[in-house]
Design a protein around this nucleic acid. Structure first.
Length: 350
DNA sequence: AAGACGGGGGA
DNA sequence: TCCCCAGTCTT
């Protein structure tokens, strides 16, 4: 199914009831968009309601004293927004007979109305097919398509804008834009996104590639990805288990011990369930010989926190679920392994 | 392309 | 503390 269909249905069901969503008055939509520039809904809502109470239409705003406009704005920050709002109101009132511009290109000429706000107003108030790309949308799109470029670089922005236009709902651009933003504000969060509740989690490229936490990329600071590895050094008599790494990740083709990767540093308490799940067998504590202190291994683009758990099976039987294959310890030197593994073995032994 | 512009809230 | 928020304007 098309993205905008899923998204639209989700939005109808989950959208918040916000005061500016029950109007098609461009004055009110314009006001809400300006207030919400770099401002959270929770912070802006009270200002929106008080502003409208004091200046219910564009003429009352146009006739107001600038001190009174700023007074209402007091505490909200970015006060140029209030000045531009006032100036634009006077312009529209005097030069356009109070009629708000109704197309993107003209909205863009207004003071304080940039690309995002022009697209938002034209799509929401006038149903013009324009993609409104704000911080939420940049994040959602970059994850949805696993965009490799930084979202604050010119190329990255071009990519995001192009994708935003592609997935736009031509029948309902305003609703679609708001749905994308709603998703970014409530589900596709900067940190700890709630992918489990996301209507698009089945088609999200970042989820598929396990890159949700590191996206969106930002130019300026080198984003180093943190990963948490727990290696299982599994021995039975003179045998030890190794596993070859697959494509699409570091160390492709090299060998290492069976590995459990977690999203965060796991503690001693996590191991029993983690191990039994991974090996498909109950691991009694007696079989765990040693757990190393975590080692940090730095790659240019990743920080690896690695722990090693030494496990032995004294008898002749071992779980059949162990990933990889058992080799004799004597053959270990014949297998290519990452530096990290080599270093650990040379200092700690098997 | 980079900096200025605010204040609040969450981790 | 740091990051980010329904961005825009200026240099």
């Amino acid at each position: 199914m098309e993205i905008h269909v899923i998204l639209g249905a989700w939005y109808e069901k989950e959208k918040r009831d916000l005061p500016w969503r029950n109007t098609s008055d461009p004055y009110k939509i314009w006001l809400s968009e300006v207030i919400l520039q770099q401002t959270r809904v929770a912070q802006g809502t009270g200002y929106y309601l008080r502003f409208l109470e004091r200046f219910p239409d564009i003429f009352s705003l146009a006739e107001a004293k600038s001190e009174d406009v700023l007074k209402i704005w007091q505490g909200l920050g970015y006060y140029s927004r209030a000045r531009n709002l006032h100036e634009t109101a006077r312009f529209v009132a005097s030069h356009r007979n109070g009629e708000f511009p109704d197309i993107y290109s003209e909205l863009l000429q207004l003071k304080g109305v940039g690309e995002y706000t022009a697209a938002a107003i034209s799509s929401i108030a006038f149903n013009e097919v324009q993609a409104a790309v704000d911080g939420n949308v940049k994040r959602v799109i970059s994850r949805l398509f696993s965009v490799r470029e930084a979202i604050n670089s010119p190329e990255g922005l071009k990519t995001i804008n192009a994708l935003a236009r592609e997935i736009l709902d031509p029948e309902n651009p305003g609703r679609h834009n708001q749905a994308l933003m709603e998703l970014g504000a409530g589900i596709c969060l900067p940190k700890k996104p709630r992918c489990i509740n996301c209507p698009l989690n089945g088609i999200c490229m970042a989820i598929k590639e396990n890159r949700v936490e590191e996206l969106p990329l930002k130019y300026g600071k080198a984003k180093v990805r943190n990963r948490f590895f727990t290696y299982l050094i599994i021995r039975q008599k003179e045998k030890i288990w190794l596993k070859q790494r697959g494509a699409g990740d570091i160390w492709q083709g090299l060998y290492e011990f069976p590995l459990i990767e977690t999203q965060s540093q796991c503690t001693i308490n996590d191991y029993p369930s983690l191990l039994s799940e991974y090996l498909g067998a109950k691991i009694s504590e007696a079989q765990i010989n040693r757990i190393s202190d975590p080692i940090t291994h730095k790659l240019s683009h990743q920080n690896l926190r690695c722990s090693f758990i030494h496990i032995s099976f004294p008898g002749d039987t071992s779980p059949s679920q162990i990933p990889g294959a058992a080799i004799s310890i004597g053959e270990f030197g014949e297998f290519p392994v990452p530096k990290l593994i080599e270093r650990y073995i040379s200092t700690s032994g098997f």
